[in-house]
Structures are given as structure tokens and as C-alpha cells.
Design a protein around this nucleic acid. Structure first.
Lengths: 109, 109
DNA sequence: ATTTAATATCGTAATATTGCGATGTAAATA
DNA sequence: TATTTACATCGCAATATTACGATATTAAAT
């Protein structure tokens, strides 16, 4: 037990859920907002901004990179992170497709 | 360790993250989609539809109720679940506010 | 009054996540 | 070359999540 039964759901459901899961942590929301505001940042900026350990920030950045929403490019001894605009737009559409669907509520509630 | 440091984030960030976290599980996505399609459902419908144990479905329904996105009303010996249209729309706006913001990518990536 | 049906809750095992210190690596600097 | 800087990764402890059987609760049906 303790394992999500991925195989019983549709690919689309698993995909959407895993994106939402990655976004479902305040540190990762804060990181995304910071990058959006500053256009770009390095890991150390976030360590100072958020007050989490460097290892922790690095881990969160890794998860965001895993879903592709951010990119990192080596720049001397630091790594420059930014939003991947294309992936961001794909997610936008994905989320809009789910959240902006019409919800008709029947009269039992 | 192992605890999210809620106190270091803005309320808004914590709130958005916790909503996304609840939605970040395929069973809960599947449950929401099922309710949206059928307009309404009872717990047993979902047990048959998804093939998870009744206790498990009940637990997922509880989490969805916690964030307010669904409502349950007692109807005889069963409970009729449906989307809370008002809360759904609030979430829509919340998510749109985040995902539909302009993302300007600087030329380092 | 008993039984059945639908659900919620409790307890627990398996697994996942969070956070961090320690350590490794690679580029810049002294 | 030695040191510093920025980052990634490893290993671990604390905690959270997932799933389910067992059990409790409440209303309908017999």
C-alpha cells in the first residue's frame, strides 16, 4: 500500500495530476512567481529569497525542471533558470481545458 | 524535517499550493471528471467506476470536500455528491490568475 | 425487530515527500 | 595551483500520503 495505482487511470488523468502535484507546493509556487517577476534567476537568489537550504531549493528546481516548466542554462559557475514559455503555454491550455469546462450542477445539492 | 515550512510563504502561495495539491492525484481528477459528466454521483458509483476500495474513495471525497470543490447531501441511505459551482468558479479565477499571467522570458535560456 | 445497503472513520502497512547537512564537481578567482 | 563560489547529489530523519480491511453508523427494506 501507499502507492498510487497509476494503471487504473487514463493517461490524461495521470498527466494532469502529476503536473498539479508538482505545482502543489508553496516553495515551487514561490519559485515560479519569483522567476516570472525577475525574468530569470540563479539558485542562490532563491536561497536568499525563500530562506530554505541550498539543497532544498535545488531539489525543488529539479522537480520543476522534470515537468519542463523551467529551464536551466549554465552560465559560468552559476545556472540561469527561466520559464520555458512553450511548456508554460501548453500547461495553460491543459489547465484551461480542465478548469474552464462547463459545470452543470443538478438539483440534489 | 519532512514538514513543509508553511510560515515562510505568503498566504496566497500556501492557499494556491494546497488547492493544487488536493487536485494533484489522479483519483481525485477522475472523481471530479465523473461528477462533472454525471452531474451527480454517490460513493458506490465511484467505487465501481474506479475500482478502488470504498474506504479509499471515501477518503478522496473527504479531501475534495475539505477544499469545498464538492458538496455532499444525504439522500436516504446514500450521499449525493456534486460540484459546488460557486467554489469551482472561485478556483477557476484563482488558477487563471496564476497560469494566465504573462510570462516574459529573458534571453539567457 | 432484523437484515441489508451506503457511507464514514479508525488503525495500520507501504511508500512518498520534505528538508537539510555533508560531500562532490566544475568554473572563476587569487 | 589553491581557493572560492555556485550548484547538484547523496543519505538520512521526520513527516505525509495512499490504500485497505475492519468496524461503526444510519436509513431503507424485509
Amino acid at each position: 500500500m501507499g502507492v498510487t495505482k497509476t494503471e487504473i487511470y487514463k493517461d490524461e488523468q495521470n498527466k494532469l495530476a502529476s503536473l498539479l502535484k508538482v505545482l502543489g507546493h508553496p516553495a515551487r509556487i514561490a519559485i515560479l512567481q519569483y522567476i516570472i517577476n525577475q525574468k530569470t534567476c540563479i539558485c542562490n537568489d532563491l536561497v536568499e529569497e525563500l530562506g530554505l537550504a541550498q539543497a532544498t531549493i535545488s531539489q525543488h528546481l529539479k522537480e520543476l525542471k522534470t515537468i519542463g516548466i523551467i529551464q536551466g542554462s549554465i552560465e559560468g559557475k552559476s545556472v540561469c533558470y527561466c520559464i520555458d514559455e512553450l511548456v508554460w503555454k501548453q500547461f495553460q491550455e491543459e489547465f484551461n481545458g480542465f478548469f474552464n469546462q462547463d459545470v452543470n450542477v443538478k438539483q440534489c445539492c
